[in-house]
Design a protein around this nucleic acid. Structure first.
Lengths: 263, 263
DNA sequence: CGGGCAATTGAAATACATCAAGGCGTGTGG
DNA sequence: CCACACGCCTTGATGTATTTCAATTGCCCG
C-alpha cells in the first residue's frame, strides 16, 4: 500500500458502514459468500486485476463492513463475541502470546480468509488478530453464518475444506519452525505466501504484494528482526529475490525451493 | 513399560485379533467409545491404577485390535485407508517430513487418542504415525464410526471438542517452537505432557511414564538429540526433574513453570 | 560374542541473539 | 517551512547458544 492510498484515520475507532447492495462489485454471484471457499475464484481471473480487491457479499443479511488502519489490533484473545469475521481487503496476522510476553504469529490472513474456523463455534477466540496493512473486513453474526451454511450445502463443504486446510497449514508451520537455519525458514515463508497468493490469483506476474515488516517475518518464524534483515539482504545479494516498495519479486524460484528444503 | 511386560513379537506384521467382548475391562459402559471423549474418565479414577490400560469398546461393530512393537511405523503419509485408529495402549508419535528428510513430531498420541481428527473425513492421512513403545490400537471403519457419531449426539459433541483441542495443541506447539532457548522448549514439553497425562489420570503420584527417547524430544521441539541430552542432564543436576528407567519425576514444578515461561 | 540403538562427553565451528548507533522516510505539530 | 518523534531498516561488534563431528560407553537382543 502506498502512502497516497492510505486513508486518514485519526482515531482508533473503526469506520463502519452497513451493507448496501453494490452491484458494481467484481463478485456479484449470489453464491459468493466467501472468497476462500473458491466460489469467487472462477470469475476473479476475468475481473480487473486489482490486487486486494474488496469482496462483496450480496443477499446476505446482517453483515457490516469495517475498516481499521494498519498496526491496529482487531481481536483480543479474551474478548468474547458473537461475530465471525472475514477479511475483504488487506493483510492481517493471527497470533498468540505466552504469559511471558513472547508472541508467535500462527498465520497471515489474506483477503477472503475467515478469521479462524473455530470462531464459528467458539465465542472466545484465544488469539490476537492484528492488521498489517489497512484492513477491511466483514462481520457476520455467528448464527446467521451458520444458518447460511445449512441453507447451502456447497458452502458447508467449502467450510470443512477450509478447516482441513487450516490444519495442514498449521502442520506445515510446525515443520518449518522446527527447521534449523534462518535461510530455510525464510525461504519457506516466502514460497508458501507466494503459493497462497497465486492460488487466489492475487499476483501480477512474478511480483507479489509483500506488506510484511521484518518484525512480522521474525515473529512468524521465531527469529529476531535483526537477523531476518540480514538474511533477506543476503537473499537479495544472491539475486534470489528483490524487495522494494512493499512488493517482492522472486527471481530464482528454484534456488528458494532448494534452500527451503522442498527440493 | 518394563522389559518384562514387552511381548515378544518377531516380525513386522501386526498381531490382529478381532473384537470379542471382554467384560473384565475397567471400562465397560456402553457409551465408552473413546477415552479421549471423556466418557471413561469418570470411572477411571476408581478403577485400578494401571497405567496405559487397555480401552475396551463394547457393543461397537466391526472393530479390530492390533498390536505393533516399538519403533515400527503404523501409518505412512501416502497410504490411503478407510479406517479410523484409536490408541488403546502405549505411546505413538504423529509426524510429518519435509522432502529433504527433516522430520517434525506434531504430537504425541496417548492411550485414548484418536489418530488425527481429520482421519475421519480424509482417506489419506498426510503424516506418519510411529509407535514409541509397543502400541495396541483399535481400528474402526470410517463409516461405522461416523454412524456411531450420528446415533449418539454426545459423542459428536465430544468429537468437536477433540478437534478444537487438537487445534489449541497445534497453536501451543507453534508457540513453543518459536521460543528461543532449549531449556524453555524442553520444560514446556515436559509440563504439557504431564498435564495431558494428569487429565487422563495416567499418573501415579509425581512419577509419570516417560518412554520418549532423546531423539523423540529432539524432533518434537526442533533441536538435536545431543543438545537435548545436555539440557536434560542440566535439569537433573539442578534437581528440577529426575529421569530413570523410562519414567520421569517432576521435583520442582514451579521451577519448570518459570523456565517454560508460563510464569 | 557382535551389531544396532541410545546416551554421554568434549572440542571446534557456526549460527543466532543482543546491544548499540546511525540513517531514512513519513507523519505531526509548531 | 521547520523541527521533531516515530517506526523501520541497516550495520558492526560481541557473546552465547546450538550444531556438528568424533570417540566412548552401556545396553539389549540375536
Amino acid at each position: 500500500m502506498t502512502g497516497s492510498e492510505r486513508q486518514q484515520i485519526r482515531d482508533g475507532l473503526s469506520t463502519q458502514k452497513f451493507h448496501a447492495a453494490s452491484p458494481s462489485s467484481d463478485c456479484n454471484s449470489s453464491a459468493c459468500l466467501v472468497y476462500e471457499f473458491d466460489l469467487c475464484i472462477g470469475m476473479s481471473k476475468t475481473a480487473t486485476s486489482d490486487r486486494n480487491r474488496l469482496i462483496d457479499v450480496p443477499r446476505f443479511p446482517s453483515s457490516s463492513t469495517h475498516t481499521i488502519p494498519a498496526r491496529r489490533t482487531i481481536i483480543h484473545p479474551k474478548e468474547t463475541t458473537e461475530f465471525v469475521l472475514i477479511i475483504c481487503h488487506g493483510w492481517a496476522a493471527r497470533s498468540i502470546a505466552a504469559p511471558n510476553g513472547h508472541r508467535q504469529i500462527l498465520s497471515f490472513l489474506l483477503p477472503g480468509n475467515l478469521i479462524s474456523t473455530t470462531s464459528l463455534f467458539e465465542s472466545s477466540h484465544g488469539h490476537y488478530v492484528e492488521a498489517i496493512t489497512e484492513v477491511t473486513y466483514r462481520k457476520f453474526k455467528q448464527d446467521d453464518f451458520k444458518a447460511a451454511l445449512f441453507r447451502c450445502r456447497v458452502l458447508l463443504e467449502k467450510l470443512s475444506m477450509a478447516w482441513i486446510d487450516e490444519r495442514v497449514q498449521a502442520d506445515q508451520l510446525a515443520l518449518n519452525l522446527g527447521n534449523k537455519g534462518a535461510g530455510k525458514k525464510i525461504a519457506w515463508l516466502i514460497l508458501s505466501l507466494e503459493k497462497r497468493l497465486a492460488k487466489h490469483g492475487i499476483t501480477s506476474g512474478e511480483k507479489i504484494d509483500f506488506p510484511l515488516r521484518q518484525r512480522h517475518v521474525a515473529s512468524a518464524i521465531g527469529l529476531t528482526h535483526v537477523h531476518v534483515g540480514k538474511v533477506l539482504a543476503q537473499f537479495q545479494r544472491a539475486r534470489l529475490i528483490e524487495i522494494c516498495d512493499r512488493s517482492l519479486r522472486i527471481i530464482n524460484k528454484e534456488g528458494l525451493h532448494h534452500i527451503a528444503g522442498w527440493q
